[in-house]
Design a protein around this nucleic acid. Sequence first.
DNA 1: TTATAACTTCAAGTGAACTTGAAGAGAAGA
DNA 2: TCTTCTCTTCAAGTTCACTTGAAGTTATAA
Lengths: 140, 140
Amino acid sequence: MDISEVAKRSNISASALRYYEEKGLIESVGRRGLRRVFHKNVLDRLALISLGRAAGFSLDDIAQMLSANSPPQIDRQMLLDKAEELDRSIRRLTLMRDGLKHAAVCSAPSHLECPKFRRLMGLAASGLIEPSSKTPAGKK
Amino acid sequence: MDISEVAKRSNISASALRYYEEKGLIESVGRRGLRRVFHKNVLDRLALISLGRAAGFSLDDIAQMLSANSPPQIDRQMLLDKAEELDRSIRRLTLMRDGLKHAAVCSAPSHLECPKFRRLMGLAASGLIEPSSKTPAGKK
DNA sequence: TTATAACTTCAAGTGAACTTGAAGAGAAGA
DNA sequence: TCTTCTCTTCAAGTTCACTTGAAGTTATAA
């Protein structure tokens, strides 16, 4: 498969694939002329990478996990750690979500006068909850 | 209050405060010599900013929300939209967390042979779930 | 008065994960 | 053969929310 085929099948841009190769996350089996040729195994590996990214691992983390073992045998403790981390995120986001929902319907004259809202503000101000979304998602 | 006082009370660094002022998120009431002087109202505003950040709003979003109204009257629909977005994030993260937990205890010889894991891989590969944590948090 | 700590500005740097652009090479089709 | 399309490399740019550094100013303590 050439790079555009892999890009299509993996939903990952060609430039990102080259970047991944440079970082050692994937390999091409050789070249046809200048062009990279990939084995279809790379698709599994890319799906694994996408999964890792979706779980919040950095590319460097993923590189470590995938290095030196194929088929990839992923450290179970690392998975549990990440699961716990996700759990914390979930709790934080849930708190936020509920606070926002309340604020949206709250009848206090100003949000600043709503005790619930102020409690949430206090939490945020004290650093108990931190920004997390990589997709700012509020941009128009 | 001078900037270091505000920094201490708000848990936000002085350089960040200057940056916020430059972006129009906060204002100082004047100068004492070169030094900025802040009114204590700025603390509420900063708590609001921290809350917005924690909810996943970008500084530009927050600037919009806070502009042209004090006391700040925040658009209720915007809050609901963000709450829904958080809800989607929560569902995605929950899926991930459960998948990771399973993977950690799964008895399949390789994760690649576990059907649950493969289903998750497929979801990630098809872009149904995207990276979200700004805290990569897996770095040692 | 003098030292110094705390402020000031402005430009540039950081990190993560890519993307973009320029310039060039080579394969496939007509 | 010629054209065109897709690939190649390499350097630099992008985004966001700040931080850092250098050089300068000033309020306050001794």
